[in-house]
């Protein structure tokens, strides 16, 4: 079974963000990057499938972006993927989801992947489009937002998360693409021996111009901070002072403290 995992590298969401000088994305200076959280579940699920099937499975992990994304690829290799593909694109953040999906689909076409894993969404852009669009472009069956996954004899049983705790179970046949939701599994931490082993694994580099044939379908006209609704009180400083102030406010404004 040939498996592909799509991973994106994104900034740590606890960072402070500001618009870049062109006003079309955030400023990447001083940000620490890591693997998109949703994609960690995708990698873990692919690796678990590899463990289930042994050498009958082969897992390729792909990421589009500048050189720094190799770090995310290395992590995926250390988690247990077999080989990495880096589509080199220093300005991948300015591509729209249609273009990112086209790059992945162009790479995957004719390679006979039985199963593709993607994250449900990227933490920075959060369009929740790339995975499904890849499936459409390849003509694969597709299920999104998985919190449960099982695969046997080419049939995937997927548990989709709906709203309010409800779930929906679907079956689909390979070739298929699934998108992974938080909590699908428990992504492993790469161990030191596996990090060493991963250093020997191949990372193939492809310049984006070689495989991107599509124009963007949407443009960003501005990036800006949200309008602060304000009105809230901000407390800063000494712990005990703040605690006393807060208790005062709660006594005044709520009926829960008497």
């Amino acid at each position: 079974m040939k498996v592909l995992v799509c991973i994106k590298q994104v900034p740590d969401m606890e960072s402070r963000f500001k618009a870049n000088s062109s006003g079309n994305w955030y400023d990447e200076a001083d940000l620490a990057f890591r693997m998109n959280e949703y994609d960690e579940y995708a990698v873990e699920q692919a690796v678990q499938l590899r463990e289930q099937l042994g050498d009958a499975a082969d897992v390729t992990v792909i990421s589009i972006g500048p050189d720094r994304v190799q770090e995310a690829l290395k992590k995926a290799l250390a988690m247990g993927c077999d080989r990495g593909v880096h589509v080199q694109d220093p300005v991948s953040s300015l591509k729209d989801p249609w273009q990112i999906a086209s790059i992945i689909a162009t790479f995957a076409k004719d390679k006979g992947f039985d199963l593709i894993f993607a994250g449900m969404q990227s933490q920075d852009r959060g369009s929740a489009q790339v995975g499904v669009t890849v499936a459409e472009q390849l003509g694969y069956s597709c299920a999104t937002t998985l919190v449960g996954f099982a695969c046997s004899d080419g049939v995937i049983t997927a548990k989709r998360e709906l709203e309010g705790g409800l779930k929906g179970v679907v079956k689909l046949k390979t070739p298929a693409l699934v998108t992974c939701q938080l909590g699908l599994n428990v992504p492993r931490y790469p161990t030191l021996p596996n990090i060493m082993k991963a250093k020997k694994k191949e990372i193939l580099s492809i310049p984006v111009a070689d495989i991107l044939k599509e124009e963007a379908l949407a443009t960003t006209t501005s990036v800006h901070p949200p309008a602060r609704k304000g009105g809230g009180i901000v407390l800063e400083g000494d712990l005990n002072d703040m605690a006393a102030q807060l208790i005062g406010i709660l006594k005044e404004k709520t009926a829960v403290l008497r």
Binding site: M13, K18, D124, L217, A218, T219, P226
Partner: peptide
Amino acid sequence: EVGICNSKLRRNVTPTT
């Protein structure tokens, strides 16, 4: 208008289709 980075920033997007 859509949010990016956990709503820490906003982005205006226009379709070209």
